[in-house]
Amino acid sequence: MSTDNGITDFEGRVAFVTGGARGIGLGIVRALLRRGANVAIADISGDALERARDRLGVSPDRLRGYRLDVTDREQYADVAAQVRRDLGEVSLLFNNAGIIDSVSPSKLSYAMWDYVMGINLDGVYNGIQTFVPGMLASPRRCHVVNTASEAGLVEAGSGFLYHASKYAVVGLSESLRRELAHFGVAVSVLFPGPVATDIVENTRRLRPDTAPAHSERVTQILDTAHRILNEQGASPDGVGELVLDAVETNAPYIATRNELGEYLRRRNDDLTAAMRRAESFLASYDTTVEQAV
């Protein structure tokens, strides 16, 4: 049954997971299936969907795969309608699809901004726009989980486009959590650190032909990220269980490691110091202006 703290009645619920055929998404799918949920996997790769279905070995009445580009709103609407026909109304939404990409500031372009934001931010919003209205009308408690990144909490040299997209997902999630709470819809934000996924390879494979070549610095960022994911990355299945634990306890934030405390404290200290300087400066400025007048 569901409680005020979170959702535990997964049996028979319908969940929708973007980027669900690989990595963290597939870990979330496995965790959902273990709890008895029926799952719609959405992924841009048809081959990945086929592999996931074969690997999971679950009957079509509990698991369906859908080819989806999360930036395509018309396709999103069509897929959502098909999910309702196949499985029923979605009450658990996991906006997980994303890429890790950026460009050198010397190669700024609207096209690259639109590309990265289109997947990492608009893709999250498209899921919200598609399914949250139905959740608002549902008599059951519902839950949305948006995947951001540690790069949405602190600037750590992952490229300004990537950081911008992930900071936006954190802010979107925090504000929506407050605004949707009284409708019985909970929102959590996942900010993974290194997880053993193929996101770097997928990013390179899916990158538009018109995108500028990665600079030496951005290439180094991606190479380092790929190495760290493989050498230090957490298990996607473990992360999937963390995510479902957050749904069960209605936790606002989902972390995958305990490494950022000092960085967050330092950022918070810098912000607090800026506010103190403002208070002192403006008080002094007002006094100076009064005296001048």
Rank of each mutant, 00 (worst) to 15 (best):
F191S: 05
E259K: 12
G98H: 03
R85E: 15
V185H: 01
L121Q: 11
F183G: 00
V39N: 08
V132F: 01
P133V: 12
D4K: 13
R53V: 13
L108V: 12
V70C: 01
N96L: 09
L264A: 14
N268K: 14
M135H: 03
K107R: 14
G65I: 00
L172F: 09
D43R: 04
L108C: 11
P133I: 10
A31L: 09
V218E: 01
Q82C: 09
S104D: 14
V195E: 06
I199T: 05
S109A: 10
T210K: 05
G23I: 05
S173K: 03
P212Y: 03
M1W: 06
S91R: 07
A52L: 10
D86C: 02
T203C: 04
R35H: 12
Y66D: 01
R30H: 07
M275G: 15
G193I: 04
D86Y: 03
T147E: 02
A278S: 15
D122R: 11
V185P: 01
D69H: 07
L264H: 13
G27F: 09
A246S: 13
R267D: 13
T130Y: 03
F183P: 00
A97Y: 04
D269F: 13
S102F: 01
T210C: 02
V200G: 03
N258I: 14
R22W: 06
A31T: 10
T147S: 08
N268H: 15
E259S: 12
E50I: 08
E216G: 04
A213R: 13
F10A: 07
N5K: 10
I128F: 10
K107E: 12
A168P: 02
V79N: 03
P252T: 12
G157I: 08
D245Q: 13
E150M: 15
M275P: 08
G123D: 00
L121F: 15
G20Y: 09
A168G: 07
E216R: 12
S45K: 07
V90P: 00
D72H: 05
P133R: 09
N268E: 15
D61T: 14
D43P: 12
S106P: 02
V247C: 01
T249K: 11
I128T: 10
E201K: 12
V29Y: 10
A77I: 09
D4I: 14
A213E: 14
H214C: 00
A148M: 04
V79I: 14
R266Y: 05
T272K: 11
T210I: 08
D209S: 13
H214F: 10
M1V: 14
G193E: 06
T147I: 04
R73T: 11
V187I: 09
F183A: 06
A196L: 12
V144K: 03
V170P: 01
A77W: 06
T18E: 02
E231S: 12
P192D: 01
E248G: 13
D43N: 08
T18D: 02
H214S: 03
V195D: 07
R35T: 10
V218G: 00
T130W: 02
L180Y: 05
L172R: 02
Y76H: 10
R276A: 14
L26D: 02
Y125R: 05
E50V: 11
R277Y: 11
E259F: 06
Q82W: 05
G12V: 07
N126V: 02
H143K: 05
L244R: 07
A186K: 08
D69Y: 07
G193T: 07
S235M: 08
A186N: 09
E50M: 06
R55K: 15
I24S: 01
E179F: 02
G152N: 00
V218Y: 00
K107G: 03
V116S: 03
E155G: 14
